[in-house]
Design a protein around this nucleic acid. Structure first.
Lengths: 180, 180
DNA sequence: CTACAACTGTAGCAGTCGCTACAATATTGG
DNA sequence: CCAATATTGTAGCGACTGCTACAGTTGTAG
């Protein structure tokens, strides 16, 4: 099946861009192939079948996402938990994050339905996000590990409300994310 | 197009059951029709087109969900915020809630992608859930409205982590959901 | 140069998709 | 009873789905 690794590496960015823009609902072979300047025939040739193709694209996107996280936040420390959570929520409000978030909820939905590959992908994204966020915790926090989990749970809840167009509901809640 | 309201009311429970079990990915006319003991031809006849059909089914499910909420929780008061949040999380762990939650994330994903109808549906579900949860807040809570929003944000974050198979991440966070 | 492997275009299969045209039957109001 | 209306089955359209068979072309190693 798949022969050339470099061929895949050349296709992946274009395939990823297409999925980020159009969503998993538009992730069928012919549109993907067109977006990548090739044919459905060649996508199967390089990736074996559709499932492996999608897995490859999602993994590629997850990689880019975590690299973007590191790049977007300097090493400057944050002073409080409130500041840490506010910084992340601000960041996810940016226009460039929209496609990632829309895709994220599709991945969550796939994981909740036990579609093969989705749960693994979602977990790897969240585990690395948690590790990254743990480092972002304010210096001297009494419980960075627990705090990061608290705040990340809060953040994800808030992101859900943002996604469905009710961004104000978590507002008051976030103020409550103080260390005990 | 749609003529008989009673005909729709007879079909909706069967259609809803099919979507809850199989997910939106299996929500195409012919399987839905088969599950409801009719034909694709008749679904279009009764509901006009697929979008109105799906909207009707989702609204029906949302109705049933909120009625189930009221039925599953007695009027017995809860003593603390921790107890309120624990009760809801326990409830959502039950097997009968699984289909609702899986469908919920598909609705969130659709809302995040601006698929017509999904955002409205998601909002109406969350608004009524919030209103219900506000009533469930412990008596004497210093800020029931804000607290309900705090806890619901936390709950939804926790539900997401459960959905992707990482139920332990929010655990420590939930202990922190104390009133200020 | 030749043999072999890597790559690619064309065409198509068998299935599903939402939806509709047409014709027939069932029901109901006058 | 008769006419209008409501309901239903059959058949199919044109588009799309993942994937494959076949035939070729290209690149490379001996």
């Amino acid at each position: 099946m798949a022969k050339s690794e470099t061929a895949r590496q050349k296709l992946l960015p274009l395939l990823a861009a297409h999925i980020l823009e159009k969503g998993m609902g538009a992730a069928s072979l012919r549109p993907l192939a067109k977006a990548a300047g090739t044919s459905d025939r060649m996508l199967i040739y390089h990736f074996g079948n559709k499932q492996q193709l999608i897995s490859g694209i999602l993994a590629h996107i997850a990689d880019g996402y975590s690299r973007q996280l590191d790049a977007s936040f300097g090493a400057d420390q944050v002073a409080s938990r409130e500041q840490a959570i506010a910084r992340v929520l601000d960041f996810t409000n940016s226009e460039e994050m929209r496609p990632f978030l829309a895709l994220w909820w599709e991945i969550v939905a796939g994981a909740a339905r036990d579609i093969p590959g989705y749960k693994e992908n979602a977990q790897s994204i969240m585990v690395s996000l948690l590790a990254w966020f743990e480092e972002q915790m304010p210096e001297g926090d009494p419980d960075p590990a627990g705090g990061a989990r608290t705040l990340l749970t809060m953040i994800e809840g808030a992101e859900m409300f943002k996604a469905i167009g009710l961004p104000d509901i978590p507002n008051r809640g976030i103020e409550a994310a103080r260390p005990l």
